[in-house]
Amino acid sequence: MKNIPFNRHRRLRASAGMRALVRETQLHKEDLIYPIFVIDGKNVKNEINSMPGIYQLSMDNLGAEMDEVVSLGIKSVILFGVPFDHDKDEQGTGAFHHNGLVQEATRFIKKQYSEVIVIADTCLCEYTSHGHCGVVEGEKILNDASLDLLAKTAISQAEAGADIIAPSNMMDGFVAAIRAGLDEAGYEDIPIMSYAVKYASAFYGPFRDAANGAPQFGDRKTYQMDPANRLEAFREAESDVAEGADFLIVKPALSYMDIIRDVKNNFNLPIVSYNVSGEYSMVKAAAHNGWIDEKAIVMEMLTGLKRAGSDLIITYFSKEVARWINEDNQ
Rank of each mutant, 00 (worst) to 15 (best):
I39T: 15
A162D: 06
N7V: 15
Y55D: 09
F174M: 15
V118N: 04
G63C: 03
Q157H: 15
F6A: 15
E104W: 06
N268F: 02
E300F: 01
D328E: 15
G244T: 08
L269F: 07
N329S: 14
E243I: 07
A211E: 00
I249G: 06
T128A: 09
V250Q: 04
F108P: 07
K110N: 00
S114K: 08
P227Q: 11
H9D: 10
N46E: 14
M66G: 06
V135I: 15
G173F: 00
D293R: 08
F247E: 06
Y223N: 08
R208C: 06
F108N: 10
V102R: 09
V77M: 09
T222S: 14
I260N: 05
A185S: 05
R235W: 00
I325N: 07
V298S: 02
C123R: 12
E68S: 14
D246V: 03
A214C: 03
N329P: 01
I78G: 06
G41I: 02
A287L: 05
V38C: 14
T122Q: 07
Y34W: 09
V116E: 04
L150F: 08
I39E: 13
G53N: 11
M225G: 12
A176H: 11
G304A: 03
F203G: 02
I117S: 11
L231A: 14
F80I: 06
P35T: 08
G131K: 09
E159I: 14
I271V: 14
K306S: 02
N275S: 03
Y204C: 04
P227Y: 12
N99K: 13
L57G: 00
R307F: 01
A245H: 03
R230P: 00
R107K: 15
H86Q: 02
N7P: 13
V136P: 03
Y55E: 08
E139M: 12
A308D: 02
I117R: 13
A237T: 09
F37N: 07
Y55F: 14
R323I: 06
G304F: 00
F267S: 11
E126R: 07
N7E: 13
M1P: 00
L27H: 01
Q224N: 06
F207Y: 07
F247G: 04
G131F: 04
S50V: 07
S58G: 06
S168V: 12
L231F: 15
I4E: 12
I178F: 10
A228Y: 02
N326P: 11
A242W: 00
L302R: 01
F80W: 01
M282K: 13
D209C: 08
Q112D: 11
G73R: 12
D293K: 12
Y256D: 05
A296F: 11
Q330M: 12
V70A: 15
R307W: 01
F317H: 10
C133D: 03
H132G: 13
C133E: 02
R19V: 05
N99H: 14
D31R: 01
L150T: 01
I78Y: 05
E188I: 11
A200H: 11
G181C: 10
V118Q: 02
L149V: 01
A211L: 07
D189N: 13
P83A: 10
I48K: 03
Y204T: 14
Q157S: 12
I313V: 09
G244M: 10
P83M: 10
E236H: 13
L101A: 09
G213Y: 00
H97Y: 12
P206A: 11
V136K: 04
